[in-house]
Amino acid sequence: MLKVTGVYKTFNPGTINEKKALNGVDLSLAPGDFVTVIGGNGAGKSTIMNMIAGVYPIDEGQIILDGQDISRLPEYKRAKLLGRVFQDPMMGTAAGMEIQENMALAYRRGKPRGLSWGITKAEKKLFREALRTLDLGLEDRMTSKVGLLSGGQRQALTLLMATLQRPQLLLLDEHTAALDPKTAKKVLDLTEELVSRDNLTTLMVTHNMKDAIHVGNRLIMMHEGRIIYDVSGEEKKNLQVKDLLAKFEQVSGGEFANDRMLLA
């Protein structure tokens, strides 16, 4: 499904701010894989997501998705294959536009946008049904501006929008990190529900080690721009948070276990 081979990325090369973000990443995902990604600050978790999505060009390597080499495609052309949810709940929706308008935009992901009407009657019905599954009452507020929604509501909506048109790969970049624990749980439950409903191949970056263990069928750990640990199946199910912490300490000499990880 997804095949990442030897991807390197250095930000600000040749300057004092030079940062080797990715140091030869190899990653292969089978269809239906739900992979959680953990790692410390600057480990390259978000960078690998952004490389796959095409936010920045890669320096070296190859990214193949659904049999298509997307390594050099601009971001907007890769969108057809990808559903994305960002850490910042403000990022995934257009605040000044209506809920149904946002959904109509997402429903046309990767399709040419012409001069036919931006939203049809049939779509409105479809969107209403989809919103009902969120159980947030948004189906009765379809003409409200998204800016009026809470962070959790916006993130749930973004998730729904990302899966409205089945993506080949769903990229979740710490999409629950900015939410309060209760809302985060709700959004995570929704994530599992949508992923299993459509059998989506998914990459989910998280800072929460419990989530990383309990969600998905495979877990990878990144450190200094490399994948240093890759576990799936029974072995992953039997993981404990303390195992992961030990693993972190082993590779990084303890520096990894920052406050955020311990609190999580």
Binding site: Y76, A79, M91, A95
Partner: peptide
């Protein structure tokens, strides 16, 4: 409104 979002939508 949100340039990054709409680019992510193709």
């Amino acid at each position: 409104n949100n340039e990054r979002m709409i680019r992510a939508l193709g």
